[in-house]
Design a protein around this nucleic acid. Structure first.
Lengths: 149, 149
DNA sequence: CTTCATGTAACTTAGTTAGTTACGATTGGC
DNA sequence: GCCAATCGTAACTAACTAAGTTACATGAAG
């Protein structure tokens, strides 16, 4: 798993899970989808479990399942559950007392607030179901699913 | 200079430069504003020079000046000149041939394109002059400028 | 009670970026 | 012409972050 690909890797995993709604997939299986190892998968999607997006069960036949229907899972929720920050720039004060810095931070934070609201709106309108629909379109066109390689 | 604060640090520097439009400020002086050293400053704002946002001159009395009026310098340009990426998530394929991944990437890239256009619009509407105006408002209220500490 | 699975802590490794040192090139003052 | 100030940049170091890995405890199913 490359750096900064936690969101796309997680979506990849979730679409696979949505395609096998009745079958619990193990961390091991999920890990092969995104070319990493089971511990990284567990760590990465632990937040999704806390958010109810997925459920996990231990022992024989255990593994991961979607916590609710793909139509009810938005990319906004997933992004938050992963702890991702959409706008990565920092506005931490480094020169307390400097009015220039205060002006910069004020303007930047103002931008951040409106920008984050916009992005969250956009991400809220995209659901896991949209992703599976897109996948199925591609599948119907080509006829081979995935991970033959 | 903390991680991920290149944008705010650069804006800090630029506002100081805008407040002394006739005086070339040295990398050394700029560095003290953001608590770092001259080489980091030069490296950070080298892209701004290439973009014409600032100019630099060597030798006695040399240093940095704004390349044009603060009203003509938008945060969008500054961000681009710094090489900053607004949306940090990656959509690099890691499983070529996997249709699930292709669907994920397609949706994510689509989101990225509209989101980046939105953010760029917002950032284009904010200029360095807006920042200096904000600073002066604060200065008029409090009466002490900055970097006394 | 054995096996398969997750949960999680602890450590290692790799990659990124700020910080630093060093030095060449350019400019202005004397 | 020489010296000091200043940027430009390469090369190295240090600090931080995040992925990868190992290890082991916990819990569920047969």
């Amino acid at each position: 798993m490359k750096r900064n690909s936690r969101l796309s890797s997680t979506l990849h995993i979730l679409v696979h899970m949505a395609e096998k709604p009745e079958q619990a997939l193990t961390s091991e299986q999920l890990a092969t989808f995104i070319h990493t190892n089971p511990v990284v998968v567990r760590r990465t999607i632990a937040g999704l479990r806390d958010a109810g997006i997925v459920t996990s069960s231990r022992g024989h036949g255990g593994g991961w399942l979607l916590g609710r229907a793909p139509e009810k899972i938005s990319l906004a929720e997933i992004s938050v559950a992963l702890g991702e920050t959409l706008l990565p720039f920092s506005t931490e004060p480094e020169s307390p007392g400097c009015l220039v810095e205060q002006a910069v931070i004020a303007v930047l934070d103002d931008f951040r607030i409106t920008a984050e609201r916009l992005l969250a709106e956009k991400l809220s309108s995209i659901t896991l179901a949209d992703l599976t629909a897109d996948f199925r379109r591609r599948f119907d066109l080509i006829g081979v699913s995935s991970h033959a390689v």
